[in-house]
Design a protein around this nucleic acid. Structure first.
Lengths: 257, 257
DNA sequence: TGAGCAAGTTGCGCAATAAGCAACGTGGCT
DNA sequence: AGCCACGTTGCTTATTGCGCAACTTGCTCA
C-alpha cells in the first residue's frame, strides 16, 4: 500500500491532494506519471483524477492530453476574499516599494503554522530573490514570520513556541527563550529583522499590517543580500515599509484608534 | 448513504471537495454543520476535515473554532502561474476601464466548459454588477463566453456545441445553428455582445485577449444595465475595450505579427 | 497498411478502508 | 455544579476504493 502521511485519516483524500500538489509543482502530468509518483495503480490514479476533474479542480488539455489544475482551484482561492484582498491590495504597494527601495518586497500571512507569501515584487537589481509567492517559510527565522508571531494571539502562538525550532544557519534562533525575547523586542520596536537567519547572506526587515478588526493579519517585508541591505540600511527603510503598511492597513479597513 | 454526484468515482474525494466548496461559499463552518450539509456522520466529517487540514487546505480558527479555507488553496492556485497572471495583470486594466466607462469590466477565461471571471472592477455607479470573480458563467449566453468559444480550437469546441444550450431569458441563443452563426459573426467583427441573453436588463460586450502563444486565452468585457449601456453605446465602447485588451495581450507576451 | 506499443479506461471481485456508532473530553452557559 | 453541544476517538463492520485484467484508442514505424 502506498505510504500515507502522518496524521491523515482518509487515504483517498490524501492521494487526491497529492495529485493537486504534483500538478501545482509540475504544470501538467499524465495518468501514468501520477500513478508512478503516488505509487498506486493506473486505474486508481485515473479514478482519482476523474473525481477531481468532475469537480473542476483539474482539466484535461484536449481530449487526450495531460492533466492540469483548473479554475476550480482559483475559484476556491478567490473565495477566501479577505486573504486574496491582502494579495490583491498588497501587490501594487509591493511594486512601489520595490521600485523605490531597489529590493524585493513581499506581503505574507500566516496559516497558523508557517508564513506564506501572497504578494511579491522584485527590485530592479540583477541579484534578486526567487519567487516566494505561495511558498511556506518558517515563522521563527523570517522577519515577516516574527511579525506574525509577535502579534499572534497567545492561544494560537503557544503550540508554535513549544515546537522544536529548525536551524537554517548559524544565526537562526532555535532557543525558545531567545525567540520569546526576540518577539518582545519586535513588539517593542514595531518591526522585525532577520539577518542571515533563514539563509546566509540574506537580510530582511518586516512591519505589521493591520486588518479591519485591528489584528495583524499580514506582514510587509523587504529582503535583499546583506551587502546591499546592511543592518544600518535595513533599519533605515523601516519608515518606508511602515508607510506602505499603513496604506495597506487602511485599504484593508483598518481604522487607527 | 449521502447522495453522490454524477460522474464521480471516489466518494470520499467528492465529499472532501464539497467541504472545500462549502467553506468557499460560507467562510467558516463547524464539524456539525459540515456533517449536516454533507448528510454524513460527525465523525466522518471530522476525519475528512482532518485530512484536508493535514494538507493545509483548511485551518481551524483557534483551538476550538470553526474551520476555514487555508493558504494551501492559494498556494495551489498560485501555481497556475499563467492563469493568475491573467488575473493579476488584468486587474489594473479592468480598474482603468471601469473608471473611464463607468461600467463593470472583467476578464474571464474558459475552463473548457464555462467562462470564469478572474478579474473585475466596478464602475462608480450605484447600480452595478455583483462580484463575478471565481463564478462560472455559460459560454453561449455571455459576451466573454462567446469570445472564448469563437476563438476556441475546434476540437475543444465541438463537444460544447453539441450540448443542450440552457435558456436564461427569451433572448438566449439555444439553437446550435444560431450559435454557430453568432460565433462566425463574432470572429468577423472581432467582438461579442450579449444583450439580455443571460439576464433581463443586462447588456455586455467583450473582446479577445491574446496570449503569448497567439491563442485567445481570455476575454475582456464590459457589463451594465441596458438603460445605461444601450446597444449603440455598447458598440461604441468596443474601441476602448480593444485598447485595454491589446495592452493586456502585450503584457501576457503576445506579439502581433 | 498493419503490427506493436503506451496511455488511459472500465468491469469485476475482494480486501482494506471509510464510515457509523457509542462513548468520551472539553468548553461555554446557566 | 450540571447540562448541553461540539468535536474526537476506539472499535466494528459494511461499503467503498482499489488492483487486476482486459479493453479501447491513438501514435509510431516498418
Amino acid at each position: 500500500m502506498s505510504p500515507t502521511r502522518e496524521g491523515s485519516a482518509v487515504q483517498s483524500v490524501d492521494r487526491a491532494v497529492s495529485i493537486l500538489e504534483m500538478l501545482a509543482a509540475r504544470g501538467d502530468l499524465g495518468i501514468t506519471e501520477i500513478a508512478e509518483e503516488l505509487e498506486v495503480h493506473k486505474s486508481t490514479a485515473s479514478r482519482l483524477v476523474a473525481a477531481l476533474q468532475s469537480r473542476h479542480l483539474l482539466e484535461q488539455q484536449g481530449e487526450r492530453g495531460k492533466y492540469a489544475l483548473s479554475y476550480g482551484i482559483v475559484r476556491l482561492a478567490a473565495a477566501t476574499t479577505a486573504r486574496l484582498d491582502v494579495a490583491r491590495l498588497g501587490q501594487p504597494i509591493c511594486g512601489r516599494l520595490a521600485e523605490s527601495l531597489g529590493e524585493t518586497v513581499n506581503v505574507a500571512v500566516s496559516d497558523g503554522e508557517v508564513a506564506i507569501t501572497v504578494a511579491q515584487e522584485d527590485g530592479a537589481a540583477a541579484i534578486t530573490s526567487q519567487n516566494w509567492v505561495g511558498r511556506r517559510t518558517p515563522l521563527h527565522a523570517t522577519s515577516a514570520g516574527k511579525v506574525l508571531l509577535a502579534w499572534m494571539d497567545e492561544d494560537s502562538r503557544r503550540p508554535l513556541l513549544r515546537r522544536a525550532l529548525h536551524r537554517y544557519t548559524d544565526d537562526t534562533i532555535v532557543e525558545h527563550a531567545a525567540l520569546r525575547a526576540e518577539l518582545a523586542r519586535v513588539l517593542d520596536e514595531g518591526h522585525a529583522r532577520s539577518f542571515e537567519e533563514l539563509e546566509v547572506g540574506m537580510h530582511a526587515v518586516a512591519v505589521p499590517v493591520f486588518s479591519g478588526d485591528g489584528t495583524v493579519g499580514s506582514a510587509l517585508s523587504a529582503t535583499g543580500p546583506s551587502y546591499r541591505l546592511p543592518r544600518r540600511r535595513a533599519r533605515a527603510i523601516v519608515a518606508d515599509l511602515r508607510e506602505g503598511a499603513a496604506e495597506l492597513s487602511v485599504e484593508l479597513g483598518y481604522r487607527a484608534g
